[in-house]
């Protein structure tokens, strides 16, 4: 039996690389006693594959994995068990069974929605910078690769770009939402920031502080209104949402975890002010 899942990778898990993540999956599946299939041969590895890799440092609620099991299983029940065994910051948010011979998942992942969360200080500079980028015919960004500097045009990759309306309310995080086509070479949110920073300097004469956290919100098929998510077809709006209205970006599952085994640093909540802490 095969299944496709969408999962989140948040918090400290942002800093776990794609290679290490494969092992995290394997060990979590073993802990949850989910009957994952293994490849043949001396170097047997579990049949978990990923359509693409999230660049290191980005958070995401829209990563995908394809799993093959040795036997038919009750998918929702197995995923609930798996969620209890995944490290804090990771959880499966939807899962569907797929038939053998189904088209590759990567085929459905045509674009990504990214939220770039900025410090409050960036609030005023964002709207004009976003406008400038959207209105430009060409948005050149520089990329350094193996000491070689190349210039690329970001503009064709931008399907949609918008920012929080009233980020000055002191409550919401000033956010830029970028819907980027998956093009070759892939364009990254860091390059969206680079373009916005260039625009802010040009338009308002100010530098834009770097986003604190960048999160992939969804992957799927870009449409007029937004993006249709690859697994369940939910429409994800192309404009940053109010936290109360954000239906797609569901919250962490309520199930309590046992964080004793995964070494992400088990937090011991602080006691009363520590005598040494002031220094």
């Amino acid at each position: 039996m095969r299944a496709r899942v969408r999962y989140a990778k948040l918090g400290k898990l942002r800093f776990v690389s794609a290679i290490d993540l494969g092992r995290v999956w394997e060990r979590s599946l073993r802990r949850a006693r989910v009957p994952i299939a293994y490849s043949e041969g001396f170097h047997a590895h579990p049949k978990v594959s990923f359509p693409d890799a999230l660049p290191l440092g980005y958070a995401s609620v829209a990563e995908y994995a394809e799993l093959r099991f040795t036997e038919p299983i009750d998918l929702p029940e197995a995923m609930a068990r798996l969620n209890a065994c995944l490290p804090e910051g990771m959880d499966v948010r939807s899962a569907v069974e797929v038939a053998d011979g189904a088209p590759r998942l990567a085929k459905w992942l045509r674009a990504s929605v990214w939220d770039l969360g900025y410090p409050d200080a960036a609030a005023a500079a964002l709207p004009p910078a976003v406008r400038a980028v959207v209105e430009a015919d060409e948005v050149l960004v520089e990329r350094l690769r193996k000491e070689e500097r190349t210039t690329l045009d970001l503009r064709p990759a931008i399907h949609h770009l918008s920012t929080t309306d009233d980020a000055d309310d002191g409550v919401s995080i000033p956010t830029v939402r970028a819907t980027l086509h998956h093009v070759e070479p892939p364009m990254r949110p860091s390059e969206v920031h680079q373009a916005l920073d260039d625009a802010a300097r040009r338009v308002a004469g100010v530098a834009l502080p770097a986003p604190t956290v960048t999160t992939r919100i969804a992957q799927g098929e870009p449409t007029e209104e937004g993006l249709r998510e690859a697994l369940d077809g939910t429409l994800v709006p192309s404009h940053p949402e109010n936290p109360e209205e954000a239906t797609y970006r569901d919250r962490q599952p309520a199930a309590r975890r046992d964080p004793g085994h995964d070494d992400i640093g088990v937090a011991h909540p602080r006691a009363h002010p520590h005598p040494h802490a002031q220094r």
Partner: peptide
């Protein structure tokens, strides 16, 4: 009893 499982590669896993 509750050996910690590293999330990033270490010398002995």
């Amino acid at each position: 009893k509750r050996q910690l499982v590293p999330l990033t590669e270490t010398v002995h896993e």
